[in-house]
């Protein structure tokens, strides 16, 4: 039964990685760049939600929507100011800029919100009155006489991840905008000839990725409630790893990579060693990339001669 517990928390953690990985993978697919500042957008989203709910006593839903709005705008602004001027620049320059944006966001957060850890409020609890008339706060459900504990956060995380995946898959497959995105990711010049505004499409991609990052931030901090300006950094790197693991540029790849990474991480923590868990995760990544350089679901890119 403990195995099942670990598996479920692995899937839950993996779902968060998957949502973050979507941001990396979509931006890479269309702008052909690695947006290393993506992890820090998660942190910004979590802070916005934290302040909205804890300081301004807004309902959690409003907090999440506010966080999504702020992050969406942040994503678009970052792209406009930092990446768009470098559209023709070598990819190394863009990569270094992205790292710069990452530090800029972290240090801005440090300045604005200080380095003191914030305790993220628990959203997913239910209150009931027991037989003695005391109020009991529950944060999950117990099955099999308490041998299997599933927290509400876990359930919400997995459900949200499924909704996002299905929604995004339908969006790219069936909507005009989604098809335009796929066209841009294949051939920007030809897409322009069709009348597709490539800059607009790239903006849109950043907007979607950053909006999802806000959701991931709230879910992440609900599961691990300590919020500091570097909160997004490690999950960002893990999610990037997940995106590469699954095959960068592929939406199902982000899901598969995220879930596998989450499960491996939790199992490594449980059965091998807490300190070594990240080492195990990256060791698995290296092995996968040795065998399948394009990732699990990635397409082998044929170089034109």
């Amino acid at each position: 039964m403990t195995f099942l517990n670990f598996l479920i928390s692995g899937i839950s953690l993996g779902s968060i990685y998957a949502i973050i990985a979507l941001g990396y993978t979509m931006v890479y697919g269309i702008a052909k760049m690695l947006n290393f500042a993506h992890g820090d957008v998660i942190m910004v989203g979590a802070y916005i939600c934290f302040y909205a709910v804890s300081r301004f006593s807004l309902p959690p839903v409003v907090g999440v929507i506010l966080a999504m709005l702020v992050c969406t705008v942040l994503g678009i602004v970052v792209e406009r100011l930092a990446y768009k001027p470098l559209r023709q620049a070598p990819s190394l320059a863009v990569l270094i800029t992205a790292i710069g944006v990452s530090y800029f966001l972290q240090n801005s957060a440090l300045l604005l919100w200080s380095s003191n850890p914030k305790v993220f409020p628990a959203f997913f609890t239910t209150e009931s009155v027991d037989a003695a008339g005391k109020t009991v706060t529950k944060n999950g459900i117990q099955l099999f006489d308490g041998r299997l504990n599933i927290s509400y956060v876990t359930i919400v995380t997995i459900v949200v991840c499924i909704i996002i995946m299905v929604g995004l898959t339908l969006f790219t497959a069936h909507t005009k905008m989604g098809k335009a995105m796929r066209a841009c990711s294949e051939d920007k010049g030809a897409a322009q000839l069709m009348g597709i505004n490539v800059n607009g499409t790239i903006s849109m991609t950043f907007a979607i990725g950053s909006g999802l990052a806000a959701i991931a931030g709230v879910l992440l901090c609900s599961a691990y409630p300590t919020l500091v300006p570097t909160t997004g950094s490690m999950p960002g790197i893990k999610a990037f790893t997940a995106a590469v693991f699954g095959g960068i540029g592929s939406i199902p790849g982000a899901l598969l990579g995220g879930l596998m990474l989450g499960v491996i991480e939790i199992f490594a923590k449980a059965y091998i060693s807490t300190q070594l868990s990240d080492a195990v995760v990256f060791a698995v990544l290296i092995v996968v990339l040795l065998v399948k350089p394009a990732g699990l679901l990635g397409k082998q890119v044929r170089e034109k001669v």
Binding site: K179, R182, A183, E186, D187, G189, A190, L193
Partner: peptide
């Protein structure tokens, strides 16, 4: 070189 969208 035609440049159709090969994956669509």
């Amino acid at each position: 070189g035609r440049r159709v969208f090969l994956q669509m």
